[in-house]
Amino acid sequence: NAIRLAGDMSHMASFFVLLFKINKSKSVAGISLKTQELYVLVFCTRYVDIFWNHLSLYNSLMKVIFIALSVMIVYVMRRGVPQRSTYNPELDSFPHHWLVLPCVLLGVAINQDPTSPFEMAWAFSIYLEAVAIMPQLHMVQKHGEAENLTSHYIFLLGLYRVFYLVNWVYRYMTEDGYWQAIVWVSGAVQAVLYLDFFYNYVKSKQKD
């Protein structure tokens, strides 16, 4: 449906905005490497089914694109010259291990099929995605404010989540028996994390 497509497109746009920013400004200052590495982990654990689930060309292609773009971003941040010298590890200080560990436990404990390692990995990726933005938001807070393109990037990520939430309501109403507790709760948590950022983003755009 169109709402879900809009979500995917804003998600994809967020990658390109970030890549554009780090290529154009030659700087990754203010970007959280931890968040970007968490996204690589999210996509690699969620899209394991790329090898056997061929729902549509769109889905398979988007999975490859999401993995490739997230890996590319981490690569530029770690290896890019001069980007790697502009990274601020002292500001990127969110204790990310405390995000991963509970998500692993939750993924093992609460999933759609307790006998399937794939379902555990999949549930883990859903939980981790919900909180993966936290190191980035923490960094923005420590910095005081984010560069324009960085804030557009975070905004697009939040927008993607809002589109998906609306898409779930739509699917619930139009598809018989469509009901997904794990993704809905995680998605709602994820959206809530952006509220404060959204508020400040809109406020600063109004000032401009």
Partner: peptide, 10 residues
């Protein structure tokens, strides 16, 4: 709950 129903999403 339809098992795997959201696997069609990203």
């Amino acid at each position: 709950e339809k098992i795997g129903a959201t696997k069609d999403e990203l």
